[in-house]
Amino acid sequence: MSNRSKVFQSVVAARPVLSEEHIQVLQQPFTIQEVKDAIFSIPGMKAPGPDGFGSSFYHDNWDLVGEVVGTAVINFLNTGKILKEINTTTITLIPKVKCPDSVKDFRPISCCNVIYKAATKVICSRLRQILPEIIAENQGPETLLFDFWFAAKPEKMVVYCSGMQEAEVTHVLKMSGYTRAHLPFSVYLMDKNWWEYQPPTDCSWYWKRLVAVKEAFKAKADLSYFAALRYSIKIGLDLLFDQPLAVGWSKVVWDRLSIPKHRIVLWLVMLQRL
């Protein structure tokens, strides 16, 4: 900061600046009513985020969850800290044509959790009160709002490509700046090696189970050979079990028509973890 060039105050004063009234608007304590207005401004038919809860759930059950959700959003806005389970986004490819055969035939959309959306909408509602007075209409303040909030860091992002041609994979990586993942799941491990990773003692039960499966792979499989294989659940089961254990509830729990969150909940119920 010491080497940073200073801006002449005369230049700043020549353009619209925040008034004391503007500052008071921005510094007002956040309220649960603001959070409620933000959530209720999201149409109920919008696609849910990774947690599976759409905005219609919060609309219908606000009397039950409103105070807790509002407090969570306000705490994030005041501290800047948010659970990583909330700060996640599912990128979905929507086909533009009936029979897509290349990457350009898809339109990517980001499905964010509603709580994540609510935080951004509360911030935008505050800025919307003052931007018309300090930014000209032809500068597009509505577009400006989303240019700097919660920007993804490409160096921390990975993408897993299944069943795609190498030319398409190369194009996706080039356009996104992400790193290609060789596993169908990912977690940011800094510079650690996944196969040498050990879970912290305070992590969740399901994450410990996932790491335990990894350890079982290490004990039974040639890692270089396994990493070179095209991912398949059957290959994993064959490596882990000589005679895979069959359960009667598998097809019901992992039904493709179910919401992913509901599959996980049912799976935990069947394992008596709830």
Rank of each mutant, 00 (worst) to 15 (best):
residue 46 K to C: 06
residue 47 A to G: 05
residue 47 A to Q: 10
residue 47 A to Y: 06
residue 48 P to G: 02
residue 48 P to T: 08
residue 48 P to V: 04
residue 48 P to D: 03
residue 49 G to T: 01
residue 50 P to D: 05
residue 50 P to K: 02
residue 51 D to I: 10
residue 51 D to K: 15
residue 51 D to S: 13
residue 53 F to C: 09
residue 53 F to N: 13
residue 53 F to L: 10
residue 54 G to W: 01
residue 54 G to H: 05
residue 54 G to R: 02
residue 55 S to Q: 07
residue 55 S to N: 07
residue 56 S to A: 15
residue 57 F to C: 02
residue 57 F to V: 05
residue 58 Y to C: 02
residue 58 Y to R: 00
residue 58 Y to H: 07
residue 59 H to R: 01
residue 59 H to E: 11
residue 59 H to I: 15
residue 59 H to N: 05
residue 60 D to Y: 13
residue 62 W to C: 11
residue 63 D to S: 09
residue 64 L to A: 11
residue 64 L to N: 07
residue 65 V to H: 12
residue 65 V to C: 09
residue 65 V to R: 05
residue 66 G to V: 01
residue 66 G to W: 00
residue 67 E to K: 14
residue 67 E to L: 14
residue 68 V to H: 01
residue 68 V to Y: 04
residue 68 V to D: 10
residue 68 V to N: 08
residue 69 V to W: 01
residue 69 V to S: 01
residue 70 G to T: 00
residue 70 G to V: 04
residue 71 T to H: 09
residue 72 A to D: 10
residue 72 A to P: 00
residue 72 A to Y: 03
residue 73 V to S: 01
residue 75 N to F: 13
residue 75 N to K: 13
residue 75 N to L: 15
residue 75 N to G: 15
residue 75 N to P: 11
residue 76 F to H: 15
residue 77 L to M: 06
residue 77 L to T: 02
residue 77 L to V: 00
residue 78 N to M: 09
residue 78 N to G: 03
residue 78 N to V: 09
residue 78 N to L: 10
residue 78 N to I: 13
residue 78 N to T: 14
residue 79 T to I: 15
residue 79 T to F: 08
residue 79 T to N: 02
residue 79 T to S: 15
residue 80 G to E: 00
residue 80 G to N: 12
residue 80 G to H: 14
residue 81 K to T: 15
residue 81 K to G: 07
residue 81 K to N: 12
residue 81 K to F: 15
residue 82 I to Y: 11
residue 82 I to K: 10
residue 83 L to H: 14
residue 83 L to C: 15
residue 83 L to R: 13
residue 85 E to L: 10
residue 85 E to P: 02
residue 85 E to T: 14
residue 86 I to Q: 03
residue 87 N to W: 05
residue 87 N to P: 00
